[in-house]
Design a protein around this nucleic acid. Structure first.
Length: 453
RNA sequence: GUGGCCAUAGUUCAAUGGUAGAACACUGGUCUGUGGCACCAGUUACGAGGGUUCAAUUCCCUCUGGCCACCCCA
């Protein structure tokens, strides 16, 4: 102990004299995060499942730019929505263009549909996308400024079966990942329906004006439909008496909605009607829905979960194409919040499969290392997944790595093997070893691996 | 955007107005011809800036970031 202290002090002093102060470290900016190798297997699993289901249902892959003209979102998403009013990542370029990092995927996909003349393709056009979205929101659990969405859009089809099928797809993806989800659904009808309903709401809530909180009074003026999802307890009572939009739907919207529900019944997708569901994007018309995980019972001792967090949402947006300068085109879509899906899977204890390393190539000495390098490549070409630690000299350390990787066999190439033209194969479970001809190593390993299965 | 709580090794946590410890992880060694174990050694931290003080990681302020609630949403 004493020795250590005496030794340590002078070294530190010298270091202080010589070493300049380290530059300040750089942290990620607010709401941005790294997704590390430890977490990425979950992401890969989720993305693979999304793709698989989308492709199976006939969707084609589209990528659109992360950056779009600000006008796209102002017009598409809606000027008076929260997303546009306070959550846009907007800036002006040196050339004076007003650009925005996309806050969601649908507007960009519809823009691409119009710009690329996809009206001329056989309709409907079914597209899926996946990528980063940006909202300048205050970060919280399951809410980041850069987050990832997977989405599907069906453009050019107005039949109710399409709405139902998209809901079904979102449900299947989650189900096959191991998440029991339930759908909250509503219909908000045509813009005319909404105007009429809005007026009805205003006159209804005016009667209760005295009971409304300051916050809710503001809402009454600005966006009365928002009053429906207020969390003010007094509000909840009043709300029960409030008119519901379903009762204001026109015949066509009502029929459409009924058919969507019938298809859902038929497909055994669990859903519940939510008369208070009014989505925050202006482009929705008719069907709107949100996807929630089934509430897990909170284990004793664990902190109580707050309200369930939506994993996804979507709806019909028949008016969007026209708003963006295209010809009137019906469309429906949904998106999943991948950050939230991944996070939920982890809380459920779902584990992604590890990439298996079937064999490990260990080497001793310079000659052995050179030979091992060649054998590794032979194995790769033969489709055998191999692990290595060529930078390590010690065979002990290499065996340790082999063990950690879960390799079933280790191939050892040392000086002796190089000279004899052989290789040593060690069974990692039993510890038995055998010497084989170096030229037959790949073939021997494949035989052993097959034998294992 | 509003309000509250918080910030110490890679991680999870300690202690302290007199410049910091553990566990796990990581690296190396015991042990260049054999892994799961053990033992030994080593690397790594007071988020940034300012103020009070003889002295600040500790007290105060600002900033940055995180968490929670609201707003809203994926």
């Amino acid at each position: 102990m004493i020795k250590k202290k005496e030794f340590k002090k002078p070294v530190k002093k010298d270091a202080e004299v010589v070493v300049k102060k380290a530059p300040p470290s750089i942290a990620p900016v607010r709401g941005m995060r790294d997704i590390l190798p430890a977490e990425n297997p979950w992401w890969d699993m989720v993305r693979a499942k999304c793709r698989e289901i989308a492709v199976a249902y006939g969707f084609e892959h589209i990528d659109t730019p992360v950056l779009e003209e600000t006008a796209l979102f102002v017009r598409g998403v809606g000027k008076y929505t929260d997303i546009v009013e306070k959550e846009l990542y907007s800036f002006e370029t040196l050339g004076g263009s007003k650009l925005t990092l996309r806050p969601e995927g649908t507007a960009g996909v519809m823009r691409a549909y119009i710009s690329n003349g996809m009206v001329n393709l056989p309709q409907p056009v079914k597209l899926w996308y996946e990528g980063a979205m940006f909202r300048h929101d205050r970060p919280q659990h399951g809410r980041y400024r850069q987050f990832y969405q997977f989405g599907c859009e069906v453009i050019g089809e107005d039949d109710a079966v399409t709405d139902a099928q998209l809901i079904l797809i979102s449900h299947i993806i989650l189900k096959e990942l191991g998440i029991k989800a339930t759908i909250n659904i509503n219909s908000i009808g045509t813009p005319e329906v909404r105007t009429n309903y809005r007026n009805a709401l205003i006159s209804f809530f005016r009667g209760y004006r005295a009971k409304l909180s300051e916050e809710d009074k503001k809402r009454l003026l600005r966006n009365p439909m928002r009053l429906l999802d207020s969390k003010d307890p007094a509000m909840l009572e009043i709300r029960a008496e409030a008119p519901q939009i379903v009762d204001w739907l026109d015949e066509t919207s009502k029929m459409h909605f009924m058919r969507v529900l019938e298809y859902l019944d038929e497909s055994n997708v669990p859903y519940q009607l939510d008369p208070y569901l009014v989505r925050g994007l202006d482009y929705y018309t008719g069907t709107v829905f949100e996807i929630f995980p089934e509430q897990e019972p909170v284990a004793p001792g664990m902190p109580e979960e707050a309200g369930p967090i939506a994993l996804g949402g979507g709806g019909r947006y028949d008016g969007l194409a026209e708003i963006l300068g295209g010809r009137p085109t019906p469309a429906v879509g949904f998106s999943l919040g991948l950050d939230r899906v991944v996070s939920h899977l982890k809380t459920l204890g779902v584990r992604p499969e590890k990439f298996p390393r079937e064999v490990f190539v260990a080497q001793l000495g310079e000659q052995g290392r050179k030979k091992a390098l060649a054998i590794f490549e032979e194995l790769r070409k033969a489709g055998v997944s191999a692990g290595e630690a060529f930078s390590k000299d010690s065979i002990r350390v290499q065996m340790d790595v082999a063990n950690r990787l879960g390799a079933k066999f280790a191939i050892v190439i040392g000086q002796k093997e190089v000279l004899d033209g052989t290789a040593l194969i060690r069974d990692m479970d039993s510890g038995t070893q055998e010497i084989v001809d170096a030229s037959k190593i790949v073939q021997e390993i494949k035989k052993k691996l097959e034998h294992q299965v």
